[in-house]
Amino acid sequence: MKNKTDRVKSFMQYLTLFIGAAIMFLPFFWMINSSFKTEKELLSFQSFLPKQLLIDNFRQAWEMGDFPRYFGNSVFVTVVCVALTMFVTILAAYGFSKLKFPGRDLIFTVLVSMMMIPYEMLMLTNYETIRHMHLFGKIWSLIVPFTSSIFYTYILRNFFLSVPDSLYQSARIDGASDWQYLWEIMVPMAKPSLVTIALLDAITCWNSFMWTMLMSSGNRNIRTLPFGLTAFTSEAGVHYNLWMAGATIVVIPMIVLFLFCRKSIITGVSRGGLKG
C-alpha cells in the first residue's frame, strides 16, 4: 500500500517531468502550429489553433526556396557521413581496444585529449585542407572533415574493451579471421551502441550549420537544409508562416528517425554505452 507522502512525492515527480516536457515541446508545437496558419491569422493573434490545416505554406516554401535541392543535399551528406563515420569508428575502436601495437594507449590518449580543442579552431585548418584538396565549393567538402569521431570511437572502444578475450579466441578456433570476428561477433554485439552513435551522428550532420555556410559561400548548389533555411528567411522576405513551414520541413526527418530508433537509443544509453 502506498501511503500519503509517497503519493505526494510521486505527484511532484510527475509534475516536474510534465513541466520539463512542456517546456521542451512548446517551441516545436508553436512552430508546427504556426506553419498551418495563414499569414493574417498568425499576425492577428486571434486564435491559438489554426482554423484549417493549411498545406499551402509547405507547398509555397518548398517551391520558393530551393528546398528540393537542399533536401537532396542534406540526405546525401548525412547518409554518406554517417556510413563513413560508422565504418571508421568501428575499425578504430577495434584497433584501439583489441589489437596490440606499440604506443597504442599513448596514441589514443593523445587523440582523446584532442577533444578539448574547440571546433572553431579546427575550422581554420580544415578550411585550408579542403582548399588544398581542391574540394572547396564541392559537396564532398561537407563530408570529408566529418568521417571520423574520437568521441564515438571512445564510446565504442569502451564497449569493445568489456568484451572478454575468450570470445575472440573462441571465434578464432571456430575458424573466423580477425576481420570475420569483428563483423560477425563484435559489431552485432555492439548494435545498441552503434545505433545510438549513428543517430547522434545523423543529427549532428543534418544540423551542421557553420561549416556548410562556410563551404557553400562559393556555391549555392551545395547548401543543405539548415543553411538553406537561413538563406530562405532572408531571400523570401518576412513571411513567418512560410519560415515556420520551412523549419518544420527541416526537423521532421530527424523526428521520424528518432521515433524509429527510440528503443535502441534507450537500451544504448541505459546500459552506459554513452557515459563518459
Binding site: S166, L167, S170, I173, A176, E184, M189
Partner: peptide, 29 residues
C-alpha cells in the same frame, strides 16, 4: 594459426556468443 588446426575448445567460462541463440551459436563454425 588456430583457425586452421581443426580443434574444438570448450572454455572454462564457455565463451558462448551472447547475442546469438543456441542454434546460431552451434551453427557459427
Amino acid at each position: 594459426s588456430p583457425d586452421k588446426r581443426e580443434v574444438g575448445l570448450v572454455f572454462q567460462n564457455y565463451a558462448l556468443y551472447p547475442h546469438m541463440s543456441v542454434l546460431e551459436n552451434i551453427c557459427f563454425p
